[in-house]
Design a protein around this nucleic acid. Structure first.
Length: 294
DNA sequence: GCCCAGGGAATCG
DNA sequence: CGATTCCATGGG
């Protein structure tokens, strides 16, 4: 496996070599995170086009790539301590791709390999568990523009002020804010779920650390599903994007569609082993974004 | 089992 | 253009 290395730094942009396949656009536009968008004009220009900028892990950050090098607007210390892990640059995606490409046979394999090609460079982000839980509770029965709007509203009202914007609000902040305040941010009927989860975490009756430390996937899933407003889909997304559980396999309407249309209604995620979640992202992106007939 | 709960986007007529 | 449908979960 290649090793990510900082090769230079200019205007605050670190230039990173040895990251393998990495697509900034696909990674940040595949529905796994909700606080990234185009680089603001006020920002130091990126060395390559199509940069994204946003706030994660309590910091403003920007990413870009040109297919060979990855560029990160951050200091070196944060690259090592935060973004390396956040972007899963320490995971062996070359191996994962091989595993996914050869897990199936026949027509299923052909579709999987087409998806792999269409979604090449997507990384599963390792986001903050609380932000992921909250974001995917909000995502239920909802569309991406509105999800983003609700999250930004919550951050603006209850997140800590940081350089460049607002951090994601802590469980304590949302617990204190109250259900009506969360509703006022546009969360709708999900306000109750967010508030209850925030309160339980704030007062210690629910532990995200316990979920993190649970070895068994099924047990971690059951813990999350014990929260009101968290069902199988929200739980799987939270485990995949917030807890780094790459064996999670969330099935939403798009995934059901690709399973029905390309795999005869049946697709066993366990054939992808610990990388089922990456296979899911490839298939989701393939069905949702890759322009294709029928 | 069935309907409903925000509201914006996607799709339809 | 306006009308309808979609969305993941829990409660009545």
């Amino acid at each position: 496996m290649q090793h990510p290395t900082i090769v230079s730094s200019e205007n605050g942009w670190l230039k990173i070599a040895g990251v393998g396949d990495f697509s900034t656009v696909r990674t940040f536009d595949c529905g796994q995170c909700f606080r990234f968008g185009p680089l603001p004009a006020s920002f130091p220009p990126a060395p390559v086009p199509d940069a994204v900028c946003g706030i994660a892990m309590g910091r403003q950050v920007a990413f870009a790539d040109n297919g060979t090098y990855l560029y990160i607007y951050a200091d070196k210390k944060d690259f090592e301590n935060i973004w390396l892990r956040y972007l899963s640059l320490d995971a062996d995606y070359a191996y994962a791709g091989e595993k996914i490409a050869h897990a199936l046979s026949g027509q299923g394999q052909a579709h999987m390999q087409a998806a792999l090609e269409a979604a090449k460079g997507i990384r599963i982000l390792r986001q903050d568990p609380w932000e992921a839980l909250c974001s995917f509770i909000i995502s239920q029965n909802n569309n991406i523009p509105r999800i983003r709007k609700i999250i930004e509203s919550l951050c603006r009202e209850y997140g800590e002020v940081i350089p460049g914007g607002y951090a994601f609000p802590t469980p304590d902040a949302l617990a204190q804010a109250g259900r009506d305040a969360i509703f006022a941010c546009g969360a709708g009927f999900r306000a109750t779920y967010i508030w209850e989860a925030a309160r339980k975490i704030a007062e210690g009756t629910f532990s995200l650390a316990a979920v993190q430390q649970t070895q068994s996937y099924d047990e971690a899933n059951e813990l999350l599903c014990s929260l009101k407003g968290v069902g199988p889909k929200v739980s799987a997304c939270t485990l995949l994007f917030g807890f780094g559980r790459t064996e999670a396999f969330p099935i939403d309407v798009w995934m059901q569609r690709v399973i029905d249309r390309r795999f005869g209604g049946k697709l066993d995620p366990t054939v992808f082993g610990d990388w089922a979640g990456l296979a899911q992202q490839y298939l989701f992106y393939y069905e949702r974004y890759a322009p294709r007939s029928s």
